[in-house]
């Protein structure tokens, strides 16, 4: 196993409020890493730091290092745009581009990255939608508006859109929190199918979900990483009292 991401002494702030405190952890390649913790614990901020989306918010800043294949994405020579091409993100609420068709949504990233050949784009779109397990549902209405899809379909569309630009890491920020159980199952299944190609980091407030889908789990509390270990270990034998309290439902 190789370490895809190495996070060292990561701190993050919104204005004067510190959201993350000295986070250190490694993320293995081709694995699913779950990030759990109660609301406001900094888990969303954490994944947003991994592809430099955190910094687009006003007054937000960070310190520390995030090494992607050994190179610091926050180095002064690093370009956030190139970082984000390698580290894609799926957001909490499905956010398809509202004025674009299903096809154009998936093609958007490819086109914005400068690829113009029509058949190349069409191939990538079909491949991505298939990989996101959405093809059968949308193949007859590729040119309809993306907003006409159901929430679960929209979220899988957003995954397809993310996959289409061929990132190496996919960050998922509570991707199923706005969805019904069936759509959630779809997305969990999907993660299992694609993890041999990608490295996945998923934020979730749902511990069963973390236990089902992930290989590693990190538990965050009040901006600190309390515990990080293999998922089965975390859930059967937590090393910290606070982790145990949380996963047994005693708070949060």
């Amino acid at each position: 196993m190789t370490k895809k991401l190495i996070i060292e002494h990561l701190n993050a702030w919104f204005g004067s409020v510190q959201a993350l405190k000295d986070i250190n952890l490694n993320i293995e390649e081709n694995s699913v890493t779950a990030v759990i913790g109660p609301s406001g614990c900094g888990k969303t901020t954490f994944v947003r730091c991994l592809n430099r989306i955190h910094e687009v918010v006003d007054n937000a800043r960070i310190s520390g290092k995030v090494l992607l294949d050994g190179e610091d994405i926050y180095a002064s020579t690093s370009d956030p745009v190139l970082v984000r091409r390698r580290i894609g993100m799926v957001f909490q609420k499905p956010n398809p581009f509202p004025t674009m068709s299903i096809f154009d949504n998936v093609a958007a990233g490819i086109r914005l990255n400068g690829i113009k050949k029509k058949n190349e784009i069409a191939d990538a779109v079909e491949r991505s939608i298939k990989m996101a397990a959405l093809w059968d549902e949308v193949k007859d209405k590729l040119y309809k508006s993306a907003t006409a899809l159901s929430g679960g379909q929209q979220q899988r569309l957003c995954i397809a859109r993310t996959i289409a630009v061929e990132p190496e890491v996919i960050l998922m920020d509570e991707p199923a929190s706005a969805l019904d159980p069936i759509s959630t199952a779809h997305i969990e299944e999907l993660m299992q199918q694609i993890k041999d190609k990608y490295t996945i980091v998923i934020v979730t407030h749902n511990m069963q979900q973390a236990a089902r889908v992930s290989d590693y789990t990190g538990f965050f509390l009040l901006g600190e990483l309390i515990e990080f270990s293999k998922t089965p270990d975390m859930f059967t034998n937590p090393g910290d009292k606070r982790t145990e309290d949380y996963i047994t439902g005693r708070f949060g």
């Binding site: 687009v56 984000r84 894609g88 957001f91 956010n95 958007a108 914005l112 993310t162």
Partner: peptide, 13 residues
């Protein structure tokens, strides 16, 4: 919405 901007940024745009 900012989520639209972020979705596009996250594609490496």
């Amino acid at each position: 919405p900012d989520t639209i901007r972020e979705a596009a940024l996250a594609l490496g745009t």
